[in-house]
């Protein structure tokens, strides 16, 4: 118990545990697969900022992951195959989409916010599939080749693994810093009672917009890394049906904490990657697990560990 409290209070310890965990996990199983896990965890961290910290549930977060993935792919295909430039384009594209949709979306909350996100995700998916098919490759997607930079070559799985891990640590560090500052307290206040926060003299609109754009930017970063990992981008990266995955992972790990998000991301990826080997209709297990979480472990795995 004391160890858990010490872990929670020390950002360095949290980051060290995450790093060590993924290196051990990666080199004892499949480094290729664990790279995928790490990228998904970045996506979950971004989503958790919106849901866990600010209390806004989105049903369409794949739009922002897809924006990052396609931003990276289109840059690599039409502008430059330089990997860093492509990643930057992906991140900026996700941030821009968040910046454009944010002012509309963050005025809403609850079911309206969740469904509007889903609606925009549907629109994005449709745009990629049909009207922009000539640019995006439609259903086939875009295959890519990235050029490295000096000794960096991310077609080497070890280099990509460490790039993803460093990215995860950076995002986790950023979120820890944010949420342990007055900004984090403010987000918790907005989650609990926005009107009261207003009356303390805050323009909550501005803070909600910043949080939303930050969340979409992190999702886009995960999308950019996904494209780099697979060397292609296809419509499954922006498929609204997959938006449930990140919600599931966030709930599973425990919303509102960095460790919860990483545990949830890793647990979800473990289930979705390894369970199909043993159970044909493995999605049913996910559904059952969600029911158990909803009724018995509402604070998720990390929330449960904290309360032991």
């Amino acid at each position: 118990m004391r160890m858990i409290k010490r872990l929670e209070r020390s950002p360095t310890l949290i980051l060290a545990v995450i790093t060590a965990g993924f290196i051990i996990f990666g080199y004892s199983t499949s480094i290729l697969k664990i790279t995928d896990f790490i990228i998904f965890c970045i996506y979950v961290l971004g989503y958790d900022l919106l849901y866990g910290h600010m209390g806004r549930l989105s049903f369409g977060h794949m739009l922002y992951l897809g924006a990052g993935a396609y931003g990276t792919a289109l840059c690599a295909k039409y502008l430059s195959s330089n990997v860093f430039l492509a990643i930057l384009c992906g991140i900026l594209f996700g941030a821009a989409i968040g910046g454009i949709l944010g002012p509309i979306l963050i005025r809403t909350k609850g079911a309206c916010f969740a469904l509007l996100n889903l609606a925009f995700n549907q629109v994005g998916h449709f745009l990629v599939l049909v009207p922009l098919a000539k640019i995006t490759g439609g259903e086939d997607g875009i295959s890519l080749h990235f050029t490295g930079y000096r000794f960096l070559d991310f077609s080497n799985i070890h280099q990509l693994f460490f790039l993803s891990l460093i990215s995860l640590i950076l995002v986790a560090f950023l979120i820890i810093k944010f949420t342990h500052s007055p900004y984090g307290i403010l987000l918790k206040g907005i989650k609990e009672n926005e009107t009261r926060v207003n009356f303390l003299g805050y323009n909550t609109y501005r803070y909600k917009l910043i949080t939303f754009v930050l969340s979409t930017t992190i999702a886009a970063f995960a999308g950019a890394l996904t494209t780099l990992n697979y060397n292609y981008a296809n419509p499954s990266f922006i498929d609204p049906h997959r938006s449930v995955e990140v919600i599931f992972a966030t709930l599973m790990g425990g919303a509102g904490s960095v460790l919860g998000a990483v545990i949830g991301g890793a647990a979800f990826m473990t289930i979705s990657n390894y369970l199909p080997r043993y159970i044909l209709r493995w999605e049913m297990f996910l559904g059952l697990a969600l029911l158990i979480i909803a009724f018995k472990f509402r604070k998720g795995i990390w929330g449960y560990i904290r309360e032991i």
């Binding site: 007055p182 307290i185 403010l186 918790k188 926060v197 303390l200 003299g201």
Partner: peptide, 9 residues
């Protein structure tokens, strides 16, 4: 934190 939230703005 309740106090901090009021003090910050």
């Amino acid at each position: 934190e309740n106090i901090e939230l009021a003090a910050y703005p």
